[in-house]
């Protein structure tokens, strides 16, 4: 284990909305350069875990470390600047800004606009064709491309993806995850929450299952996959 010092680590993290606690001690670690899929039923606390990572929800107990650095309580914009690129659930874009303006916003994380735009359009030529279009008027798949482009072009240490597939056709979801796999191959660590478990297990190095505000199992995708059908659809098969 020693050679795999985790890049990102959560230890005993608790979080609450108002007085209702939803995370009851989450332990999770993401080794550098790996893809970790976080699975589990609705309401297990997956999105909240990601929000804690993005600084949007404070952790009431526990510690969060990024590359050995303690990052509890750091504001979202500072986390973004030290290398956590989070694409939130829904669409991680500004609908009333143009494609180009969306990419310009990404420059706050530290990479200059010209570089971001160049990288994004190279990776997603379709975005280049629509640079002047309002992001909210693009198709769902294109919006997710834009969100991903923002995350990728800013040289993040960790890419955090929440339900990339929401409302998208299977073909587009596959395309997006192929891309995630390519990015991971370049050494970026990825933490991904996804309802289409089989799809994401195809690209993940590790999988963790959450239930009841805790991580209940961690393992290789092959170990986890067998349990999926019964977990999601009941014990018929």
């Amino acid at each position: 284990m020693a050679e795999h010092t985790p890049l990102l680590e959560l230890r005993g993290v608790h979080a609450s909305y108002g007085r209702i606690e939803v995370l009851h001690g989450v332990d999770l670690s993401l080794p550098a350069g790996k893809v970790l899929a976080l699975l589990g039923p609705n309401g297990a606390g997956k999105s909240t875990t990601l929000k804690v990572l993005g600084g949007l929800v404070p952790a009431t107990h526990g510690c969060i470390h990024l590359a050995g650095r303690h990052i509890n309580g750091t504001e979202p914009h500072k986390l973004a600047r030290i290398g956590i690129a989070m694409i939130p659930e829904g669409r991680g874009i500004f609908p009333r800004l143009t494609v180009q303006e969306n990419l310009r916003m990404a420059s706050y994380a530290g990479v200059d606009t010209a570089t971001i735009v160049e990288r994004a359009f190279e990776q997603f030529p379709r975005l280049g064709e629509r640079r002047g279009q309002l992001a909210g008027t693009m198709s769902g798949g294109e919006q997710q491309m834009l969100a991903l482009a923002r995350g990728l072009a800013t040289d993040p240490e960790v890419l955090v993806l929440d339900e990339l597939s929401m409302g998208l056709a299977p073909l587009i979801v596959s395309e997006l995850y192929e891309l995630v796999a390519r990015v991971a191959a370049t050494g970026v660590s990825v933490l991904v929450v996804e309802q289409f478990a089989r799809t994401v297990l195809g690209v993940a190095d590790l999988a963790a299952i959450m239930a009841g505000g805790r991580v209940t199992a961690v393992g290789k995708p092959s170990e986890i996959e067998a349990e999926l059908t019964s977990a999601y659809l009941g014990a018929a098969t």
Binding site: Y17, I20, E21, V22, G40, P41, N42, G43, A44, G45, S47, T48, I209, A211, G212, G213, T216, A217, G219, E227, S230, A231, G234
Partner: peptide, 13 residues
């Protein structure tokens, strides 16, 4: 969704 649980995920591992 947030505090919802008790779903039959059946993973005890």
């Amino acid at each position: 969704q947030l505090d919802a649980l008790g779903d039959g995920l059946g993973v005890t591992g």
